[in-house]
Design a protein around this nucleic acid. Sequence first.
DNA 1: GGCGGTACCGTACCTTGTACGGTACGAGGT
DNA 2: ACCTCGTACCGTACAAGGTACGGTACCGCC
Lengths: 256, 256
Amino acid sequence: MTAKNDPSRSLALLWGSHTTPGRSGLTVRSIVTAATAIADAEGLAAATMRRVADRLGVGTMSLYTHVPGRAELTELMIDIAYGELYADVDEPAKATGGWREGLRLVGERNWDLYQRHPWLLQATGARPVLGPHATLKYEAELRPLDGIGLTDVQMDSVLTLVLTHVEGVARIQADLARTEDGSGMSDQEWWLSTAPALEKVMDASRFPTASRVGQAAGEHHQASVDPAHAFRFGLARILDGVERLIEEKSPEAGEG
Amino acid sequence: MTAKNDPSRSLALLWGSHTTPGRSGLTVRSIVTAATAIADAEGLAAATMRRVADRLGVGTMSLYTHVPGRAELTELMIDIAYGELYADVDEPAKATGGWREGLRLVGERNWDLYQRHPWLLQATGARPVLGPHATLKYEAELRPLDGIGLTDVQMDSVLTLVLTHVEGVARIQADLARTEDGSGMSDQEWWLSTAPALEKVMDASRFPTASRVGQAAGEHHQASVDPAHAFRFGLARILDGVERLIEEKSPEAGEG
DNA sequence: GGCGGTACCGTACCTTGTACGGTACGAGGT
DNA sequence: ACCTCGTACCGTACAAGGTACGGTACCGCC
């Protein structure tokens, strides 16, 4: 019994105590911390069971005493990381500037978190991690949207939109960083070394808009992509779109 | 020489002919087609070199005669898939309804493509695939935004925003589908089997907004997440936000 | 008819998660 | 003080995947 997918097994692990040590001082907490440190520095793939165990000075299989498997370890890493987001559950709702600044704070904090822990992007999957910090995150992020005229379903949709945007742009950023230090070549270097070969093989006159816009964007960002700019530009558009949705619902508010 | 990263190696492969056969009839095209078929059905991870070779009735290592490695095979798969997007390069620009409907078409077509080829989400990385179809895609998707008052940089930013949104939501959808038929459990089943255990371990009164909104959203979508709804809701907000950006730039256009 | 290039492929190595079965530590009872 | 038993710890082994290496055999050309 206690099958691998048993939901209560995972939940008990997530919500339980992580600090009761075994004989050698090994705890769930120390395992998660070690795995996170490796993943921060070298990506989720580098945080193998062997690497984590080595870092802790224990045998690989010892980890399995505290954690059912790699999947569950990853869930723990995610939930613990979410704990870094907000000082308290009301932080976004207390932002001066109303729902708009609150939602912007949510975006920024998630963005910052992805900068610190890019592996989160490779780790989060279909099913939400129902740990204590994940739950608190959802609560904290919904509060600034409460009582401003949106339905409950719309509140959820708006938050999902913002979080999806942050995640998407952060993923581009993380892929970029990973590729750059995997290949030892910056985005700009890569482009400079690729462009001449590309010109040889493609006929730019067939792609006039792409050539013009691509060139302009490349020069403006000094790179082929600029995730930080995409984040801010996109967030601004999205907040404007949400504002319009709210205005539509309370037309009498006018433009006061 | 002809190092693994040699950009002109990749480019020549992408832009070259894929239909000149070897002794056993093996071609780049047939390899890509086989790999795509497997990936469509079972995910990118299932399209291993061994599986692809088996499907073609050749030895595993024979693939390496035509394709330098798995990474390059994946690039080819991506570029070929992009070829399915538009009937011709002016299709989005010709949409009735101006830039807004053109951009919506771009969103919908990319969404549909991700439905057909979910592995694209696992395959696309930091650096764009500079193949012929990828280039044509960029050209086609920029055209509806040309000449409506946006700067070149803004055109690129708006397109990036829409594509990032589609990708993000499609990724949620794909993760969900993969998890569902990996575990043989639907999202709803998973939730029904998890919720009771969750209630035991978490105190709902600490998370009033999350509980209320989560419940409302869950009931409305009949699932814990609804990617199709997120796609449409988000796209509508984004298009509204872009509209406001365009209006700001030509204030005299007023609200006529 | 012979020769050279290249398409094809069998074998082997390395890496990762984890099943399995053993070992040994330490707490509790006598 | 000693024995016992639960469980923390871990060594070994296996399967799967990418691909390096070195061979084999086919085809076109002289």
